[in-house]
Amino acid sequence: MKQLKEYTIPFVGLKQGLHQFEFQIENTFFEHFEYDEFNASAINVALEFNKKTTMLELQFTATGTVNVNCDLTNEPFDLPIKNEIFLVVKFGEEYNDENEELLILPYGEYEINVQQYIYELIVLAIPSKRVHPGVKNGTLQSDILEKLEELSPKEKTIVDEDEETDPRWDKLKNLLNDK
């Protein structure tokens, strides 16, 4: 996958201490990952970059909305998202990203690309079942909801025990009880 330049941070020229970066994420970002679950997105990712002598600490915070389709009604709605990821970057002999909270870069590296971490931060903030808020509180008017209500199973009426039944059936029931 091609690395996007705007998400590459050259840390070799930064002074030690805290640095702030902000990224505005829209659907063009997700097209790069071939992820098409969102109709639209407006997400602000704040990156708190703390450079120390032997390591880097990255605190990602994403807030915003994504427009997705409801899993029940297929109606589009804006889903607010908020998520955080903390990442420690250390230096070693070879590149290693097996641990989700620790990234090891080779000693000669001078920059880090954070696009994959931003992507995971946002995608993991989306719940597995997306339900329109109008479905939860009952205010959504939709043809699909009306059809679901029409096709939903109705309550069974309880048969009164005192009702007259056919005597032939009563005799058959007695055969089961006479054992």
Rank of each mutant, 00 (worst) to 15 (best):
I85D: 10
W169Y: 06
I144N: 08
P153R: 15
D166T: 00
D36A: 14
Y7K: 00
I144R: 13
V159L: 02
V114D: 14
T65K: 02
N69M: 12
I25M: 08
E84T: 15
Y7W: 00
E149G: 15
L47N: 05
L58C: 14
C70L: 01
H132N: 15
P127F: 09
Q59D: 13
V114K: 11
K52C: 11
G64C: 03
V68F: 06
G13M: 03
N50D: 08
K5T: 07
E75I: 02
L87K: 13
N44I: 09
E100C: 13
I104N: 04
E98Q: 10
T28L: 12
G138A: 05
G134T: 04
L103D: 04
V68C: 07
F23L: 02
F29K: 01
K52R: 14
L105A: 06
E100D: 15
I144G: 05
F60M: 06
E109M: 12
G64A: 02
L145F: 05
F33R: 03
A40Y: 06
K5C: 03
E120W: 04
D36V: 14
K15A: 04
E94W: 05
F49V: 04
T63F: 11
V159I: 01
E163M: 14
I85R: 13
T73P: 06
V114Q: 11
V89A: 01
N113M: 01
E93C: 06
L18D: 11
S41D: 08
E57G: 04
Y110W: 08
A125M: 01
V45F: 03
G64M: 03
V123F: 10
L87W: 08
V159T: 05
H32E: 15
I85S: 14
K147W: 00
K15R: 02
A125W: 00
F29G: 02
A40E: 09
N177P: 05
D170M: 10
Q115F: 08
K2E: 08
S41F: 09
L72I: 11
D97M: 07
E111L: 14
E37C: 11
C70F: 00
E37F: 09
H32R: 11
I43G: 03
L18P: 12
L124K: 08
L124M: 14
N174E: 13
E37Q: 10
I85L: 11
Y119H: 06
F30I: 05
K90M: 15
L145I: 11
V114G: 09
D36E: 09
Q3T: 06
E31H: 09
F21D: 03
E155S: 10
Q116W: 07
E84N: 14
A62S: 08
L14M: 01
Q3K: 13
I122Q: 01
P133N: 03
L79P: 11
S142F: 00
I104C: 05
P127V: 15
N27P: 07
A40N: 07
P76L: 03
L124H: 11
S128V: 15
N50G: 04
A40L: 14
V12N: 14
K136H: 10
P133K: 02
L4V: 00
V123C: 13
E84G: 09
G64T: 04
H32M: 13
D143L: 09
